[in-house]
Computed example of a mutant assay.
Amino acid sequence: MEITFEGKRALVTGAGKGIGRAIAIALAKGGAVVYALSRTQADLDSIKKESSNIKTIFVDVGDWAKCREAVEKCGPVELLVNNAGIGSNQSFLEITEGEWDSVLNINLKASVNISQVVAKGMVARKQGGAIVNISSQASMIALPKHTSYAASKAGLDQVTRMMALELGPHNIRTNCVNPGIVMTDMGREHWGGEEGKPMKERTPLKRFAEISDVVNTVLYLLSDQAAMLNGVLLPIEGGLLVT
């Protein structure tokens, strides 16, 4: 199955590192003009060297007005990946107002903000489009010290469904991927040793996801090959959720 994005314009948030960076590079290699958005200039300078198809946007998605303005300046976008996000490691009884607001702002509110801008353009052009939200298995399973993070991702799951319902009549597909532990640099640091063995053993495939596992799934959902997929929440966790 050949997937190409020639003639398409894509926006990827949180594109400076990890999964977002890999998605942006893969889209560019597939022929798309990619707007890579990050709040870290050094990361943007680095990813821009990967492909002449990559353009960069320096903005913090947590700033509603500035982010909206930056995305509007991109012009027409047919493909959107809401990947920007932050983690949280506070137990339920230790959650602070600042932590809660920060996680929900970046992981959920920003995705709504950016999707509004992009989707309004898609609707106006009447040519459809595809959106993929990067959620987490934490929206589907209870994990210690993940209350804020899990709530933000569960909210994103439901926003995905609502977007699919309301944008679908405009031929705009919205889907969601829910990765488990992914072997990014951070993933290897926290889960690559002994502390990760119990979770790995519980997973039927007996391994954690690689970045490519997530990238390939996202590319498929963005492509015309997934033309009838809309409102899907797709776990990428090796079967952990069935145990």
Rank of each mutant, 00 (worst) to 15 (best):
K55W: 11
Q225K: 14
L11P: 14
I106N: 02
T160A: 09
G192I: 00
G239I: 11
F5N: 12
A154L: 07
H190R: 05
G85F: 06
S88I: 03
E194K: 13
T96M: 02
I181H: 06
P179A: 10
T56G: 10
H146A: 13
K49Y: 08
G168D: 04
K126E: 12
V103E: 00
A26S: 09
K48T: 11
T160Y: 09
A138Q: 05
L143E: 11
V177Q: 03
Q158H: 15
R68S: 09
H170P: 08
K200R: 15
R173K: 09
A138G: 09
V34I: 03
V182K: 04
L240V: 15
S148A: 15
S91C: 07
R202T: 02
E237I: 04
T4M: 08
T40D: 14
N113D: 11
N107Y: 03
K17F: 09
A124R: 15
L79P: 10
Q158Y: 13
L27Y: 00
E210F: 03
M122A: 10
K73R: 13
E195C: 00
N53V: 06
G98Y: 00
L108A: 02
S139P: 12
I236K: 11
A150G: 13
R188W: 05
V81F: 03
S111W: 00
E97C: 00
I141M: 10
M162I: 05
M183H: 01
D185M: 01
L167D: 04
A150Y: 12
S51C: 13
K126V: 04
G193Q: 03
R9V: 12
A138P: 08
E201S: 09
G87A: 04
M186G: 13
N89L: 06
E189I: 04
V218D: 01
C67S: 15
K120Q: 14
I106Y: 02
S135C: 15
A15D: 09
K55S: 15
M163H: 10
I23F: 04
L79F: 05
L221N: 01
R161K: 14
G85T: 02
S88T: 07
H146L: 10
L222D: 05
T174Q: 07
P235C: 13
K145C: 09
G193E: 08
L240N: 05
Q137L: 14
S139T: 10
P198C: 00
G187I: 02
